[in-house]
Computed example of a mutant assay.
Amino acid sequence: MTDTSGTDTSGTDASGTLDEALQRLHASGPERNGWLSNHAPMAVEALVRHGQAPTVHRWLDHYRHKLEDMPAHHSPVTAATWREALGDPARIADWTRFFERETTERPWRDVLAEWWPRLLPGIAGGATHPVIRTGHAVRTLLSTEESAPRRAELAHALGYWAARAQPLPEIAPLAPAPTAAAALDAVPPVPEQDGGIRARLAQLTAFPRWGATADPDTARGLLAELVTAATHRYGTHGHGEPIMLVHAATAPNAVLRALPALPRELWAASLAAAWAASAAVTAAYAPREGAAPLATTLTAEEVFARAAAHGDDHTIKFADTALDVGDPTALAAAVRAVDLNPPAF
């Protein structure tokens, strides 16, 4: 997988397009219709990173009808009251304002390190979108010049996560699996695969044992293995639910992107949470039968250009993760996502 620990000059946005896009978006809330996520900040970050900055404002114009204003504030979140506000979606604006203050007054890495272990148990909340948005924001701050809109984007992502944080049910351990791919294959599907993700996640009972380690470097390697396995698996199982199953890969990849900004002592717990999130999405939506794998001769740049032209936000974000994995099977999985998901344009 691509090393996300250093500066990626290819992601530098000399035109300022990313900051302009984020400023357009920060008047909007992270959801619409009371539950559906606003994917625009994540999609535009991926578009800019992969050389599609000239398309960003046109893409936002098409997406504009899906944006809603930031919800009303209720009461401030403080160091004394945050526990009672955690996981309360009515407090999205309160949490966003809290993290805007925090990331203005303190180094953003310090804020992230303090709140990461508090938020990690709720990684599946909001269908994993909050942690994915956080991963995009952290990647930008790690690899491009820091700016006020980019710090504000991290505040919005963390605020969304705090408001939607929701622990999974208690999960019993099943037989251990030797690899991430084998572990995903062994995840039992939920009994009733109807309804929304909250109804499905409530049915979770057990996952295979995989990835337990106390060593940070081992945890990072296993997390990269998980992202690769989930990305590859989409190529054969994405047809089960083409939109929702992208999160089995993009959620753990968001955690992987955040690791370089986190204290090493948090890496093992981050792996465990990422595995739980990926397994949960797999259990909720994966079909019982896989399809034949797809092959592609397209380059990484051609694959992402195809996803960008397709325009669907989930497809763009999945292609972004597939390019992080970078091998031919991952690129073919991204092409399959283009084929499976309805185009936005």
Rank of each mutant, 00 (worst) to 15 (best):
A295M: 14
E100F: 09
P342W: 06
P71E: 03
V227I: 00
A172D: 15
L154M: 09
P117Q: 00
Y285C: 12
A230Q: 02
G311A: 06
A85V: 02
Q193V: 00
D61A: 13
D312R: 06
P191A: 00
A268I: 11
L340K: 08
Y160Q: 15
E45V: 04
D217R: 00
R257G: 14
E170F: 14
G29M: 01
A330M: 01
G29L: 04
F345T: 12
V335K: 01
S15I: 04
A157I: 14
I171H: 06
V325A: 02
L154F: 07
T7N: 10
V281M: 10
E225M: 07
V131R: 04
P342K: 02
D69Y: 00
N253F: 01
D312H: 11
L223G: 08
A249T: 11
R101M: 10
F99E: 12
R220T: 13
T315K: 04
E100A: 09
H237R: 11
T7R: 09
M1H: 15
E102L: 13
G29P: 00
S147P: 02
L226V: 01
P328V: 15
D8E: 15
L25H: 02
W59E: 11
D94A: 05
T315R: 00
V131S: 03
R139S: 15
T2V: 04
A295F: 14
E302C: 09
I92W: 02
T7P: 11
G238V: 08
R198V: 08
G51M: 10
I197A: 06
T179H: 11
H50S: 10
L158R: 09
S75Y: 13
A319Y: 12
D194C: 03
F304G: 01
P287S: 04
V56D: 02
